[in-house]
Structure formats: C-alpha cells, structure tokens
Amino acid sequence: MISKAFLLGIIEMVDKDGLEETTDWLQRIGIKLAEIEGPGFEGARENDVNYIPLCPFSNILLDFIQMYGERPSQFTELVNLSNRKMKEAEDGWKYPALTTVTGILYHSYTRKRAELAGVELLNVGAKCPRTHNNVYNEKALERAGMNKEEVDKYLERSYYVSKIQYPDKE
C-alpha cells in the first residue's frame, strides 16, 4: 500500500505544487536515501560501465499504471521536463536518460552514492520497462566517450547504463 500511496503522492504533488517542485522533491529524497546508504554502486559492473539488470521500481510502477488505468499525465510531464532539461542544459550530462518518473529519484540516489565514492556517474542510456524504448543522454555519451551502439549492447541485458567517471581520468 505504501508504494501505491507514494506514486499517488507524486500525482498530487504535481497538481498542488507543479513540475519543478515535484522534481526537486524527488531528487532530495534520492539524495537523502543515498546519504543513509553511503558510497556505493548497485547492479553489475564491467570495467567502468555500471548497469542495472533489473529496472528499479518497475514492478510497482507497472502495477500502479495498470491499476490507474493509464500512465498518469503528471508522470509523462515530469519525464518530458527532465529530458528537455537534459537536452537544453549546458551541464546536461548530469541528468538521467529518463524513461520513468521513479528514475528521477533513482538517478539522484545513484549519482549521490557515486559522488560519496569519489566518482561521477554519467547515465548514458536507459530502457523503458513499459515500452522497451531506449533513451540516451547525448551530452553524457560525449563526456563518457561512448556511443549509442556500445550502450545498446548493455541495454540488451539491462535497463540503466552509466559510465563511472574517475576524477583523474577526465
């Protein structure tokens, strides 16, 4: 019940305080969770590439969308806003290649945990658990020195691909 309540809470939050506030709220939750967990990386690792074989929160999210009857428009708007910023912002590499609303929280969580470990995590691509479409972060790809074909290989067996960027390698 608490997971459904949280997802409904996101919808309510968008209606009440708008997209920017809700995005900020989700990011702050992710950062606080990361501070509780400490430095680290989830999922699998191959050299400097970190990938997540199972989509975080996807079961809960897909169940919720089924229950709700459709993908809530508030979720779509949050994802679109984030991806627009990713493309337009000068430091667009900091944003997630977003496919789901929960990715906002998850991205700030993983990035913060990586930051605590002394590295930067660049989310170069992600796969939507609902449509199976791939989304890429072009600026992160460029910064990571990777191309879409390389990312696709990981996305065939995962949902979220990031490059671990060590400070001394930049």
Binding site: E35, I36, E37, G38, P39, G40, F41, E42, G43, A44, R45, R113, A117
Partner: peptide
Amino acid sequence: QKPLGEFSQRYDVDGNDASY
C-alpha cells in the same frame, strides 16, 4: 561500514558498497 552500521553483501576493492 555503511552509515547505519551495516556491512553489506559485497564491496569493490576501494571499499564501496557493490551489493546486489
């Protein structure tokens, strides 16, 4: 050790949590 006092499933060689 993690902030709450836990030792998790596994770590990388630098001591970062790498548990799944």
